[in-house]
């Protein structure tokens, strides 16, 4: 696992990862970040997390049942961040349970499949739901997964058949408009996966969490109720805070 950060040279520059090398020094108390993954069934949510946590990829993975809970520590500059990840099942029948997982989340990754246009629509509806009902400060990232299927220089496999159904520009424009972070990823090859989490970590107001750990959660619902729902939507769901990125 310690080779996580070294595996993708370009990404190790992002200063994330290397959780094994962390020394428990006094000021390196991990900051807990609750993160939830949402999106349609079979877009690769679990595979993304699996790549991020174990740096592995499993072909033909069975659908997640209910939700899976995983943790991963990351180093960002001088801080250590502990992601507590809820990897939810995408099937319709689990939809009613979703609020339980995003209720206290500080970050959400909404995943769609670049080879399936319908999955972006589902992603949009998740974003809407999050902006309406989740913590107003939640940082949302939109991730288009499975780009390995549409990369042109795929040797051998002609399966790709230019199967992209969601153009990068289109999704990017939407993400910009809705105030989301935007990435295209391949859980299979590992492209872009760490970036998602790194950028989220950068964008989350960490000082805020450190100063009053865990209380963010209990208060968040009240704040949400007090604020008119329109307020959230107009400023793009809140993540457009004054953070460095």
């Amino acid at each position: 696992m310690s080779n996580n950060s070294r595996q993708n040279g370009s990404e190790s520059a992002a200063r994330a990862g290397g959780e094994n090398g962390i020394t428990p020094s006094a000021n390196l108390k991990p900051v807990q970040v609750k993160l939830v993954l949402l999106g349609e069934a079979a877009v690769g949510k679990s595979s993304l997390v699996f790549r991020f946590v174990n740096n592995e990829f499993q072909e033909n993975k069975e659908p997640t049942i209910g939700a899976a809970f995983l943790t991963q520590k990351c180093r960002l500059e001088d801080k250590v961040i502990k992601f507590e990840i809820w990897d939810t099942a995408g099937q319709e029948r689990f939809h009613s349970l979703a609020p339980m997982y995003y209720r206290n989340a500080q970050a959400a990754v909404v995943v769609y499949d670049v080879t399936k246009a319908a999955s972006l629509d589902k992603a949009k509806s998740w974003v809407k739901e999050l902006q309406r009902q989740a913590n107003p400060n939640i940082v949302i990232a939109l991730a288009g997964n499975k780009i390995d299927l549409v990369q042109p220089n795929e040797e051998g496999e002609d399966d790709s058949e230019s199967g992209r159904q969601v153009p990068t520009e289109e999704a990017k424009a939407y993400a910009l408009e809705a105030g989301l972070l935007f990435f295209e990823t391949s859980a299979k090859k590992g492209d872009g996966v760490r970036d998602v989490f790194t950028e989220i970590a950068k964008k989350i107001p960490l000082e805020h969490i450190i100063s009053r750990p865990r209380q963010v959660n209990s208060n968040s619902n009240q704040i949400n109720v007090i604020q008119p729902p329109g307020a959230n939507r107009s400023n793009g769901g809140g993540p457009s805070r004054d953070c460095a990125c």
Binding site: E62, P63, I65, G66, A67, L70, A89
Partner: peptide, 17 residues
């Protein structure tokens, strides 16, 4: 059957109705 039928339980803590 649930536990045996899916390998996803092996990789993480799960919570399911």
């Amino acid at each position: 059957n649930m536990v045996n039928g899916s390998s996803t339980f092996r990789s993480a803590e799960s919570w399911t109705p």
